[in-house]
Design a protein around this nucleic acid. Structure first.
Lengths: 237, 237
DNA sequence: GCAAATATAATAGTATTACTATCGTTTTTG
DNA sequence: CAAAAACGATAGTAATACTATTATATTTGC
């Protein structure tokens, strides 16, 4: 029997999303102040952008002190890594639930792409994290978390595992649909990154995207993936 | 008149405005110091990354003063916009040149994708601009030029026209190959952005890309585009 | 060839950022 | 209830991202 949507949502909201613990000094989930830091950093970054975001400004917003925030995160960069890790871990859970007990590989791929490319419409949990706004932050700021000179050492520390797991899961589903296809990882990473990009273009550079009112990034990437995998499977000898 | 001739005329007139003049205070091409600023900003950004790059450090490198550099660019952000505009205008030139006098639409698409996705191997010009290094900067820093709160106003000022022209040209070539395909702009923008991303993954996150020693981003995107356009053209009513 | 215009260099100064360090007070908990 | 942990307040630092001013060097137009 299929569990209904509501029970899945409940289960999701009760799950603690795992973020690599080297990212923070003190786990923000372990205290009230920590949760307020996360909640309001999402709101403030969305409001003024990550570049203008400072711990001092966040302190004012939450009625706390700059120095207290530094006891949770050693820098705003680490805080961004925390938020992005949380987001991708959350997406991974959505992917797993959406594809769970779906026997047909093509249907699993359809569901997975939907989870990855869709606009998050409503805040589904009752926690301090607003996923709708966090999704906007990912679209606008995610690249900044890895486009740094420290990317290789931070990658070694495991700061990007959540993101890489999402891409790997998608590439496995792609492979299950068509094991003849030569580039499952590149296709998966192109879909994940490309979805964020199409959402950005939709909001700021409409002349170079077909996504807008009528067309969604989901439609575009579903069509693209179907065509790519259909063609190659027809070629199989 | 033939379309390829129009294309060349178009390009020539666009090369003159390759870099919108509102980007700089004083045209760096107009003086020796200006050229040294461009030449060494490329080297220094590649060396230490855009985030650590400052006009003071650049001044030391070129034996000049911070205040003199500020007479050319009002901020390091504007300098990045200059470099990226120059890069995309240069790519556009390469695209038009490579597809010029190629009668077959599929062949034109092949050549265009090659120009956009290839690793730039050698510094082809004799100018102060090293395209190999500039290409690395675009891979590592381009997103930062538009992932800002000012993107809409800067877009209105025309700071991203060069980039948008490259995407539009590619989408036109896609359309010439298969006018039935529904998402030429999204496919084009996905290829342009995705190529940069695959190059980045190749260098830093090898586990989520198939691109590496054996496979190039060019191969991946050529295969993808062919499959996407083949499938849809077969469906044409 | 020389004055005027322009370009560049040198110096100083400002507000802000991204922290670190210290210390006192409040809150938690064993 | 005492010790530990958490938090707040304040101060301080080096660097950043500039602006402003003045002096000097270079180019140019007549």
């Amino acid at each position: 029997m299929q569990p209904n949507i509501l029970s899945m949502i409940n289960l999701l909201s009760n799950l603690k999303i795992a973020v690599p613990d080297k990212i923070f000094i003190k786990d923000p989930e372990s205290s009230d102040l920590g949760k307020r830091i996360i909640e309001h950093s999402i709101l403030l970054i969305d409001e003024i952008g990550f570049d203008s975001f400072t711990f001092k400004k966040l302190g004012v917003k939450i009625g706390s002190n700059e120095s207290s925030i530094y006891r949770y995160f050693e820098s705003k960069h680490k805080l961004l890594l925390y938020l992005t890790s949380w987001y991708w871990a959350w997406i991974e859970y959505q992917m797993v639930f959406a594809t769970h007990n779906v026997p047909d590989a093509k249907e699993r791929l359809f569901k997975a792409i939907e989870v990855i490319t869709q606009t998050i419409k409503e805040d589904v949990t009752i926690t301090h994290i607003n996923e709708v706004i966090l999704n906007r932050i990912i679209i606008n700021e995610y690249s900044k978390s890895y486009l740094t000179k420290e990317v290789d050492s931070e990658n070694k520390e495991g700061y990007f595992v959540a993101y890489k797991r999402v891409v790997k899961r998608l590439s496995e589903i792609i492979n299950a649909v068509n094991s003849q296809y030569q580039f499952p990882s590149s296709l998966a990473s192109t879909i994940v990154e490309g979805a964020l990009h199409q959402h950005f273009l939709k909001a700021h550079f409409r002349s170079i995207t077909d996504c807008g009112k009528d067309v969604t990034p989901t439609e575009f990437f579903l069509n693209l993936t179907q065509n790519v995998l259909k063609s190659t499977s027809n070629e199989s000898k």
